[in-house]
Nucleic acid binder design. Structure first.
Lengths: 335, 335
DNA sequence: TTGTATGCGTTATCAC
DNA sequence: GTGATAACGCATACAA
């Protein structure tokens, strides 16, 4: 690996001059700068990020804290879209992206320690497990932070507008004539709480009273649980005419159960999902669902984070609400 | 940030002793080591990776070179599965994972320079664009490498066994009675070449001669192109009875076109995909396809790469072939 | 406009 | 068994 010293030798200047020239410091004259840059390129120089980071305390690296209960990881379409657009935005602003792990070599450590150890300039938490001790440790640390779909007090966040989305969904289902609407909700997170509250509100706004047995605890991204909840709902003496699922993927479990019982969607029972992932729109019939704007969420998260990192004076804490969109699909029958 | 010096001060030992103790050097006595480790933990120490990496030349970081023509990025299910299992395996062996970018701050650079600059111990290339100058630069560099679905001479690689997969697929379609089989192939890569050769071979093995108009150039992960190719095939005076698509996602374009023409799958025309992504198995009818073992590919790639990184003497170049599996589905009619 | 000197936090080679 | 010291490559305050 060629260093600035070797370039300095080659150019007949001091290595300080090289260091400055390579960063376009006004200290160095334009023709010297050019000469230095050219020999640097010729010699195949590339700056040692470790040394630079050690000296400046800046790494131009953003950490991604993302793990999930189910182990789908990056294969989770909603989160992978968020991370992809986060990555693109970070790249365009000159930041790299690494995953926050909990081990270096043989050395085990917490996620927070890892991020500090790597000198991450900032961290995005895209996670469902916000009550996890390790996540909380991160949130209370000194690294600039942005969270997705959860807001820590005094930390920036980007939230899908779940309240509005749920309201849109209930409104749509109600407008199609449904009065017996059931809701299988996901893991008990802030997202779920928001959706639940919004669900009750929207129903109340239409004068619907929701029987308690219509509201069932499920899990996100879990077909097994939603299949079971569906079974439970269909066994009721007065079953719902429409079932709302925690997300599009979970709905697949419900779909299987409904078909196993010889029922058909939406003829015998109407359904709706949440997320608007690709498969929901290529299955037959096309799923009625809410499309969350994952790309916008990821991009916004990167912008907020970098803004905070680069600000000389800390900006006010921001919590950005990103609207979603109803995809009508074909799974809510007009009755 | 607390450093080893502060710990040394606190413990009344030299900072060299601390450095050694924290890495379990036999130099330091067991009870001193214990005492040092405890105060380190108490003081919230975390090792500065930049300093460590600067000194040792090892970063415990693997770079991921992954970009695509279409811009789906991480949302590409096949690749995201590969990267996820790569990440899990890397983590378990004490390695981190960062994306190889081409910019740090304002400074533009090549992917190779970036990876060198960050001191990546190794790089995985999961990419379709193997003829790209930047990818080639990386392949010719000094960083340990593993490629996915492409083999550079003298570099480790993990390949989905496309030849075998394609043969299985053609065999299946043939066994269902089809004699007029068309193939829309993807971007002209090694993967495609392998599949094409295997397609012709398998057809020949069954005594089928393939009319040239049955073999059409398409693109990976592109619905538009496959829709057009489908249109072309269906317009033939003697259209195929079965169409093979470059991948499951591309098939959606074909599906749309087939349905637009008022035809039904598999009644009027049979189809098969490639990849075995989730949506292929939840759509109706379930797509006949080949499931590539993405998780195994990612895991193997990490193992190969780390093995090469950690070997004192460079091991022989390896190219691992990962078998796939036929998912029969319901889109190839028995005729 | 350019060069000198020092230190960032760590590891490693010695000497004690 | 422990400590002093010199790098690693770079950035920067300060001197020239």
């Amino acid at each position: 690996m060629v260093t600035i010293k070797e370039i300095a030798l080659e150019c007949g200047v001091s290595f300080a001059a090289v260091s400055k020239a390579l960063r376009d410091s006004p200290d160095i004259g334009p023709e010297t700068t050019l000469r230095i840059k050219e020999t640097a390129k010729k010699m195949g120089y590339s700056r040692n990020a470790a040394a630079s980071s050690l000296k400046t305390g800046r790494s131009h690296m953003l950490g991604v804290l993302y793990y999930d209960r189910t182990g789908v990881g990056l294969a989770h379409e909603y989160f992978s879209l968020i991370l992809e657009s986060f990555k693109v935005q970070a790249a365009s602003q000159g930041y790299g992206m690494l995953f926050v792990m909990n081990k270096v070599g043989q050395q085990q450590m917490t996620y927070y320690d890892y991020a500090r150890s790597q000198g991450c300039d900032g961290v995005i938490i895209a996670n469902l497990e916000y009550r996890d001790a390790e996540v909380i440790e991160m949130a209370q640390g000194v690294i600039p932070l942005v969270t997705v779909d959860y807001a820590f007090p005094n930390q920036d966040s980007v939230l899908s507008d779940n309240a509005d989305c749920m309201e849109k969904l209930v409104d749509y289902v109600y407008a199609r004539g449904h009065r017996r609407i059931a809701f299988i909700y996901g893991d008990l997170s802030d997202v779920t709480k928001t959706r639940l509250a919004s669900f009750y509100n929207a129903c109340a706004a239409h004068g619907l009273s929701v029987p308690p047995e219509y509201v069932i605890k499920g899990l996100f991204h879990d077909t097994e649980t939603s299949a079971q909840a569906t079974r439970q709902l269909l066994a009721l003496s007065e079953p719902p005419t429409c079932i709302l699922y925690p997300d599009d993927f979970s709905f697949i479990g419900g779909k299987n159960e409904i078909e196993r019982q010889g029922l058909s969607i939406p003829k015998d029972v109407s359904v709706a999902g949440f997320d608007g992932i690709l498969l929901s729109q290529v299955m037959t019939p096309r799923l009625t669902t809410i499309q969350q704007d994952a790309r916008s969420i990821g991009k916004t998260a990167a912008e907020l984070l970098i803004q905070r990192i680069e600000a000389k004076t800390p900006p006010a804490v921001q919590s950005v609400l990103v609207p979603g969109q109803l995809l009508p699909g074909e799974t809510v029958k007009k009755i």
